[in-house]
Design a protein around this nucleic acid. Structure first.
Length: 572
DNA sequence: ATCCTCGCTTC
DNA sequence: TTCGGAC
DNA sequence: GTCCGAAGAAGCGAGGAT
């Protein structure tokens, strides 16, 4: 009935890939597996190796959390919860925990699971609602497979494959196996939005057939960060990457979105919602359809179908507005985030605008290969009023004006600046030097570490995650937490600190995963913003906190106070 | 009916 | 989003 | 340069617990 290969062979290949270290070695090992599979299995294996259990356009999710996976493992093996939790702390990966438990507690089985059946199993898990039912289903499967198969079933379910490949690795495997150019394979992935589809096209030498389709999202072009560094000024740093003249526009702090609009072809299978004779779709960065949450944008966008009946795809940002139509901080948007719909009341409470800054297709024709300058001209065709705005682009010859432009952008309520190469094409899914995002670091804070947590995966041996605090005031030394961070220190520094924290632990929680420590280690933290918080005792939290350096020279009695944090938040 | 935890997405 | 690390 | 993995705060919503 089916020629689907055994799931055991896939598990073996993934284990090999995980164990190999070189990028090429990993890609070639994956290629050996790909070569043995038929088209249907190739499609599945390519998606899974890239960390996607379903294709991007599929709205279903199978992701199951640690807790449910541990319960399923308990049911399948009879293991004790405490033992499994302890093993999870030790091994850091639920797949390894499950494999270990089966190995130790369950008599060996003969497994004949195929890749096709594994996919059917994932679909069943996705369609089952309720964690109890999901857990029972997973437990049933775990009882009939080998430890190695269970390891990868669980990893895939948890969405934590971590074989060091990702989509880029699969592209490289395909390009090496079938002798296609990496860029060609990558382009097919961008346009189809599905590595599995691209894999089959690569095998058949039909990559050229991948094309951009209205109401099918494509991955967004991304920007690289740029800032003044050491001796180099901002102007010098930017000039190094994009030679002037450059395009400069505000960097908007909202939700990245791709709008698809066309006269309604009446095809029910298309994404998007019908609205006044037009069809409108909005996609988020993960290519999820979000138009239902923004009816206040869908209505006006539908009017664009008159100017471009055969369709247009716009790239832009959804930003929150204040009562006067001015741009307000991102935090206001949180209330509209992750919602399925938006009530009239919410639309009034937190109004939004869509600020368009690029065109990916117009009149049904892709414009990706047109220059940035040419694409900008195409935006002239539309009427930018109400909640539909257009980013103002300046052509800048003298980069020394960047600092002034930056301050002006901030004064308009925006995050900073974008600098773009005028002659660059739109590169879907790429983070290149054609687009630069300019930010400026705020002042830093000196804080003391009050608690530490064990890391995951490669960091599971380190106490890598710090909770830190400021003093209540100059006279009151009470410590108030303001956030957590790990990022910024090297593994070597973390290793040394781990030892110190272990020797100066006050209390441990959660099987040794979390521990409070003597408040002695002072670190300097940087961040992008200070926001009001319910989570931390100080009442504030830092946005994107990262550790700049250890302040071994500074005693805990001299760290910053709550007043400093409040001032940075704008609460004088 | 209400509360809480988890999973997930946004940045 | 951020960062460090590996190649 | 580029990719990958390990991390942060906030809020929504589904489901299970009370």
């Amino acid at each position: 009935m089916t020629d689907s290969a055994s799931f055991a062979a896939l598990a073996l290949a993934l284990a090999d890939v995980a164990a190999l270290s070189g990028r090429h070695d990993k890609a070639d090992r994956l290629g050996v597996l790909f070569a043995e599979l038929d088209d249907a299995d190739l499609r599945r294996a390519a998606r899974w190796a890239a960390g996607r259990v379903f294709s991007l356009s599929d709205q279903r999710t199978v992701s199951v959390g640690f807790a449910a996976l541990l319960r399923a493992t308990m049911a399948a093996t009879g293991a004790e919860e405490d033992d499994l939790r302890a093993a999870l702390v030790r091994l850091g990966d639920p797949g390894d925990v499950t494999a270990g438990a089966i190995e130790a507690l369950v008599p060996p089985v003969e497994s004949d699971l195929t890749i096709e059946e594994a996919e059917g199993f994932f679909e069943q898990v996705a369609e089952t609602s309720g964690s109890t039912a999901k857990t029972a289903l997973i437990a049933g499967m775990l009882a009939r497979v080998t430890p190695e198969e269970a390891r990868f079933l669980v990893k895939l379910l948890a969405g934590e494959l971590r074989i060091g490949m990702g989509e880029g690795g699969v592209v490289s495997a395909l390009s090496r196996l079938y002798g296609r150019k990496g860029a060609t394979v990558r382009r097919a992935v961008m346009l189809t939005g599905d590595v599995g589809e691209a894999a089959v096209l690569a095998r058949r030498d039909r990559l050229a057939e991948a094309h951009l389709t209205l109401f099918h999202p494509i991955t967004f072009m991304l920007a690289s960060p740029a800032e003044a560094k050491g001796e180099r000024t901002l102007a010098e740093e930017v000039a190094r990457q994009v030679p002037p003249p450059v395009a400069v526009e505000d960097k908007f702090d909202g939700i990245r979105a791709q709008a698809h609009v066309a006269a309604d072809p009446g095809d029910e299978d298309l994404h998007g919602v019908p609205e006044a004779g037009a069809r409108v779709a909005l996609f988020s960065r993960t290519l999820d359809a979000i138009e239902r949450a923004f009816p206040d944008l869908v209505r006006p966008l539908a009017a664009f179908a008159e100017a471009a009946p055969r369709g247009v795809i716009l790239d832009g940002e959804i930003v929150p507005l204040g009562p006067q139509g001015e741009v307000v901080p991102f935090q206001a948007l949180q209330k509209r985030l992750g919602r399925k719909t938006a009530s009239e009341e919410l639309q009034r409470d937190v109004p939004v605008a869509f600020v368009a800054y690029d065109v990916l297709a117009i009149d049904g024709e892709p414009t990706l290969d047109a220059s940035f300058r040419e694409r900008q001209a195409l935006l002239d065709r539309f009427d930018w009023t109400g909640p539909l705005r257009r980013s103002v682009v300046a052509e800048v010859h003298d980069l020394d004006t960047l600092d002034a432009l930056f301050d002006a952008a901030r004064a308009r309520g925006n995050e900073g600046l974008m600098v773009k190469a005028l002659d660059s094409p739109y590169k879907p899914g790429r983070r290149g030097r054609d687009w630069l995002k300019i930010k400026k670091a705020l002042a830093t804070l000196d804080v003391v570490v009050t608690a530490v947590e064990r890391g995951h995966g490669g960091r599971r041996k380190l106490l890598s995650d710090f909770t830190f605090a400021v003093r209540a005031s100059e006279s009151d030394g009470t410590l108030l937490n303001v956030g957590k961070a790990y990022s910024g220190l090297t593994d070597a520094e973390l290793a040394a600190l781990t030892e110190w924290f272990e020797e100066h632990t006050l209390q441990t929680f959660a099987h040794g995963k979390v521990r409070t420590v003597e408040p002695e280690v002072v670190v300097e933290v940087a961040f992008d913003n200070v926001q009001v918080s319910k989570r931390h005792k100080s009442g504030y939290a830092l946005r994107f906190p990262r550790i700049v350096r250890l302040r071994e020279d500074k005693p805990a009695a001299e760290i910053d106070t709550l007043a400093t944090v409040a001032a940075l938040a704008g609460d004088a």
